[in-house]
Nucleic acid binder design. Structure first.
Lengths: 210, 210
DNA sequence: TGACATTAGCGCGGATCTGCTTGAATGCGA
DNA sequence: TCGCATTCAAGCAGATCCGCGCTAATGTCA
């Protein structure tokens, strides 16, 4: 945290930067990993939702406030990605931006416009890079754990779980390898998925607390 | 980046936080992964080196300046870890701290006191947590690549490389598995390590650019 | 009502990986 | 100078992993 510098009486003697938060809100819709964007009223370009950090507020709270006020999104758990600090990256002055990622269910983007992450380019500021980092982090997480963002309501079949992972990974995963990797982290409910065509599939819940 | 808020004329109308950088400087000395600490003149407790971010300066530059001024360390390439933002975490006021990690050769800690990471606890602020994050990131990197921080001068033997990785991992790695995992990322120089006892070992250089 | 299409998931053979053993190449000491 | 300790690194057998094929269990349509 704070560093002890030469001989300042108070912190106010230093010039301080503005600190913003910007958030890549990810979801899976129509079998595709999507990010929520909106049009910046100043630049008229597409961008991620963000806001300035207020006094006495944590970064996560600022993210939640920005998503609530600008998109009507509630109840997310943002994770930090990176601080963008290039001098001159914001024409209005000295602004640091702390990039975040949040994941919401398919219907949760609310007032944000969904864009497939493979096509979401040309965003304002360094928001393309934020999307890249967010997707990269989410894919790493999904490669290790069964639906860690809990996009899928329990209980679910292994096939339904794999379809979510397919969308996040952006490619068709091999069903057999996927099943073998995920089964140790799942617990059978004993019930079967009825009503569909074909052999009924077993229903599972997550066991890993993460 | 910057977010467009309600109707401020300029950024100066918002209260802004002080932003600090704090850095876990890691090295391998005597076969142990160590972190460089110093005594805080205000609190008299041990802490990581840090400073406040100056205007027109990037976070990496602030890290380099703090290490140069407080420890005489030059030429590091810091990597960001996390932003600590808890209100009240610094008694002097509203201070965000961006934690960093940097790796230096064994003799490179200069004026910092080396502490084995297994014993470096009870540091000021949230610096224990920074050390934890820094070690975790470094270990993940070393698990994938041969000495990515370039602690070992080229050319080197596989055994010398493994000893560095042992120190970073904090445990004895299995020599065969280690050799097999690293060989695809190494290139034989054709020369042999002479002068030691036993069969001369082949010398290698890194091929992975990272 | 019975044959067929569809889906789940178990089991098999091939490939890969792991840790141990063995042979080879050196320096050192008698 | 000759054995011996030491170290490197290739070879081997057991274990694990992977993708494919097969069987089972359902809904659907004639």
């Amino acid at each position: 945290m704070a560093a002890t510098d030469r001989k300042p009486k108070t912190l106010a003697h230093y010039p301080r930067p503005s600190v913003a938060v910007d958030t890549a809100v990810l979801t899976v819709a129509d079998g595709q990993l999507c990010v929520g964007v909106l049009r910046d009223p100043r630049s008229a370009r597409l961008r991620l939702p963000g806001t300035f950090l207020h006094e006495g507020e944590t970064l996560a709270d600022a993210v939640r406030r920005s998503l609530r006020e600008k998109a009507g999104i509630e109840g997310v758990e943002p994770a930090q990605l990176h601080v963008f600090d290039a001098p001159g990256r914001d024409s209005r002055g000295w602004v640091l931006s702390v990039a975040h990622v949040a994941v919401v269910p398919a219907t949760g983007l609310r007032e944000l416009q969904p864009r497939a992450v493979t096509e979401a380019m040309g965003l304002d500021f360094d928001h393309d890079e934020i999307v890249r980092l967010a997707v990269s982090l989410l894919r790493a997480d999904y490669a290790e754990h069964p639906d860690p963002a809990r996009l899928l309501p329990e209980p679910f079949t292994v096939t339904a779980l794999r379809e979510v992972h397919d969308a996040v990974a952006g490619e068709r995963l091999l069903p057999d390898s996927f099943r073998r990797r995920m089964l140790p982290m799942l617990r059978r409910t004993g019930e079967l998925q009825r009503g569909g065509v074909g052999k009924p599939a077993a229903l599972y819940r997550r066991t890993t607390t993460s």
